[in-house]
Design a protein around this nucleic acid. Sequence first.
DNA 1: CCATTTGACTGGTCTATACCAAGTTGGCAC
DNA 2: GTGCCAACTTGGTATAGACCAGTCAAATGG
Lengths: 238, 238
Amino acid sequence: MPNRRVVKDSKHETLLEALAELTVKLKPHTQLPSERQLSEDFGVSRMTLRRAIDVMQSRGYIYTVPSKGLYVSEPRLVKTSDVTSLSEVLRHRGSDPRTKLHLADRIHASDEVAKALGLRKGEWVYRVEQSFFDAELAMATETAYIPTEIAPGLLEQDLTASLSSILAQHYEKPILRVQYRVRSVIPEEKFRERLGLAVGAPTFEFFAVGITSKERSAFLVVSYKRGDKYDLNYQLEL
Amino acid sequence: MPNRRVVKDSKHETLLEALAELTVKLKPHTQLPSERQLSEDFGVSRMTLRRAIDVMQSRGYIYTVPSKGLYVSEPRLVKTSDVTSLSEVLRHRGSDPRTKLHLADRIHASDEVAKALGLRKGEWVYRVEQSFFDAELAMATETAYIPTEIAPGLLEQDLTASLSSILAQHYEKPILRVQYRVRSVIPEEKFRERLGLAVGAPTFEFFAVGITSKERSAFLVVSYKRGDKYDLNYQLEL
DNA sequence: CCATTTGACTGGTCTATACCAAGTTGGCAC
DNA sequence: GTGCCAACTTGGTATAGACCAGTCAAATGG
């Protein structure tokens, strides 16, 4: 019985690693073998190979020129993986002193929270306020709202774990995507103090809604990140 | 001779319109016909149909549940098309009084500019500084740097047109993607004044590099946008 | 010798078919 | 009835083959 990984094991994902290996040791603008050649080398069909190429391309490792070939991209700026920047909204690092729990309770949803979560005003939601540190320095502070109906007993869980991992593992509510809005603001006093910022220092305000596979809003996270510590990196495909 | 559109005409793009029509008149969480059924209805292969479905899904119109079916998504927040927010960095609106040209000249690239554009320090670049208004209100101000080698005679062009359209139409340098970094900052005096902001008002700082099909950096745009007027909306797929 | 044609490439698109795992359903045995 | 299992359906993945339009270089013609 082959010792298979339980979760994912699709061919084009395996291909990604192989292709990544291939590209990193090549200089930028080097031409790669043709799609037909590569698919033969890797022993997969061309369609499958193309799927992997598409991903590599969208991640900025490869670029294609029709009728000519595949080429290795130049590394640019900070390499923007699709999931950077916001990742931390979801992935609270492990149970170390880098997390401080301010508050965890159950409240009635305000207008704003209810609207974001698709609830009626006044319905029960859990509220969890935390800050995140990097070597004594407060980097970000956030307030999470989760409908009690979605995750009963949430406050008994280990809240230092990632919110999305808690929802996935204990409540079978995997988060498929997150829609979020970013603003450049001067934070209100409460959050400014938590971040140890000077009066008038700029921050990013994140307003993020996590959406499950059943298209339900599972959480709302409002967070503030120090403007002097965070860069957001994106890539816009045209 | 059929009057074909010159540019694009792929089947799965046509499908997108048909699918969009289908979904908009259905209520959220309504189940759609199966992939096999749809592909038959539209007279395309299932693989082609799936390509369109993938796009619809990534755009948030549809969600899928394995072994069950396709469903219509709920409209969420501000619908985040892939290209929102930054679009204006590229698409300066037409030749109307909503644009003010501050400056257009040719300078030696500074360290920072040279690095972003992949040049050596001191090489010639065009510099164009503009502000953008919405009904008398300054919304954003930007400085664009373009290597003279890439676009000789650029300053003789109509600079109210979009930078990327100028590069595409007059210089055959289509911009394929833009990598950009966003910061939350208090702008320096010069830009603060142009935006008519109070001292200490927060802004977004954009640092955007446009990249051509040949993987060359064609422009660097550094822009400041009023924090009180701009929301950035994104969707993060997990 | 130069211009033109030809043909062997390239990536991009589409088709038809096949199999898998997981959810759903219906019928049969008890 | 109730429980269980087989058959069918679903999206997800992979295959092999085909055609297109554009590139580019070698072969061909003047």
